[in-house]
């Protein structure tokens, strides 16, 4: 177990190093931060001295090492726009994004498992065929269209749900602003969560169905039938557990990917999360903020992947977390 975490930790260090290098090196191509930082009135000489002071004229490696040295101490530089540490600015928006991803994940699990399992058990029923057809259509609908459709139907026409913002939030333990504890906050979460979930839901349904159908063909499931085990137990104990093994691996990575997808959803729903902030930062050429965002998202990836491996190891008895592959 300890060996697993040590191995994971070093993997994470390498991944974070690569991410930081990439995100740091693209910032040169994002535009001139001084244009945003100072007005038109400042002369070219003054600009040059400012660049020198900020170290923008130093060689790339020097700049990167300076950045990296601070970064390992948790200092990712100050946001040009907010005039505050970029890391702090990002972390303040993290809860909103994570809660959105959480909401979407719950929706995906709640819908994809029963639908996938049912359509694997009864592939010839019209429900399964409809689901398979719809899932193809679902995969190809762009997110913003789903969002606009949902807003139109549930916010404008039916007026059941709010269409923008997080609504009421409560502070938990001083640093986490949550919308999950109030009815208003939860109501605000529904449409964005469904929108975000809509990207992955068809994929998950198809994945679970395909895996389940394969497992149902296996010898050990056939043997379970031959033992006279009840269909319920065969489907939910014998088959589902084996189905979920590959789904957990693929699914875990997808949930990490969803963090990136939040940019679109947050923009459409004016959701005050990291993705929304990132888009603003790009518009303002707020490079420290952009770099900080990429690094935090990278860290989330690493953490989710570790968790996924951990869960996989717990479910799969043939995996030995303690080492030896």
């Amino acid at each position: 177990m300890i060996a697993f975490f040590v191995k994971r930790f070093f993997q994470a260090v390498v991944v974070m190093f690569v991410i930081s290098l990439i995100s740091f090196s693209i910032q040169d191509n994002l535009g001139d931060p001084l244009r945003e930082l100072v007005g038109q009135a400042v002369s070219e000489e003054e600009r040059q001295t400012m660049r020198d002071e900020m170290g923008l004229n130093d060689p790339f490696l020097v700049q990167y090492l300076r950045f990296a040295k601070k970064a390992v101490q948790g200092d990712l530089g100050n946001s040009y726009f907010f005039k505050k540490p970029a890391f702090e600015v990002i972390m303040k928006k993290l809860p909103a994004t994570l809660e959105l991803v959480f909401g979407a994940t719950i929706i995906i699990v709640l819908f994809s498992v029963p639908i996938g399992v049912y359509s694997a058990i009864h592939p010839e029923k019209w429900f399964s065929k409809t689901v398979m057809g719809l899932s193809i259509v679902g995969i190809s609908i762009p997110v913003f269209l789903t969002a606009i459709g949902l807003i139109y139907l549930f916010a404008i026409e039916l007026n059941w749900l709010p269409s923008y913002g997080r609504g009421e939030t409560t502070s938990v333990m001083g640093f986490w602003e949550t919308g999950l504890l109030s009815a208003d906050g939860l109501r605000h979460l529904i449409l964005p969560s469904f929108t975000l979930a809509s990207i992955m839901l068809p994929l998950f349904i198809r994945l679970i169905r395909a895996e389940m159908m394969e497992v149902l063909q296996s010898e050990y499931v056939k043997f379970a039938w031959a033992k006279g085990i009840s269909p319920r137990r065969i489907y939910f104990v014998h088959a589902l557990k084996n189905t979920m093994l590959p789904v957990i691996t693929v699914g875990g990575v997808q949930i990490g990917t969803m963090v990136a997808y939040t940019i679109l959803t947050e923009t459409v729903f004016q959701w005050p999360g990291m993705g929304f902030l990132f888009l603003e930062a790009v518009n303002r050429v707020d490079t420290p903020l952009i770099v900080a965002y990429l690094i935090v998202v990278g860290a989330i990836f690493v953490v989710t992947n570790t968790l996924v491996d951990l869960i996989y190891g717990l479910v799969n008895p043939t995996v030995n977390l303690a080492g030896k592959k």
Binding site: E219, Y220, K222, F223, A224, H238, K241, N242, N316
Partner: peptide, 12 residues
Amino acid sequence: FQDPMMTLNPVL
């Protein structure tokens, strides 16, 4: 069954 490697459920 023929193949005992496949007959028993690997996760139980």
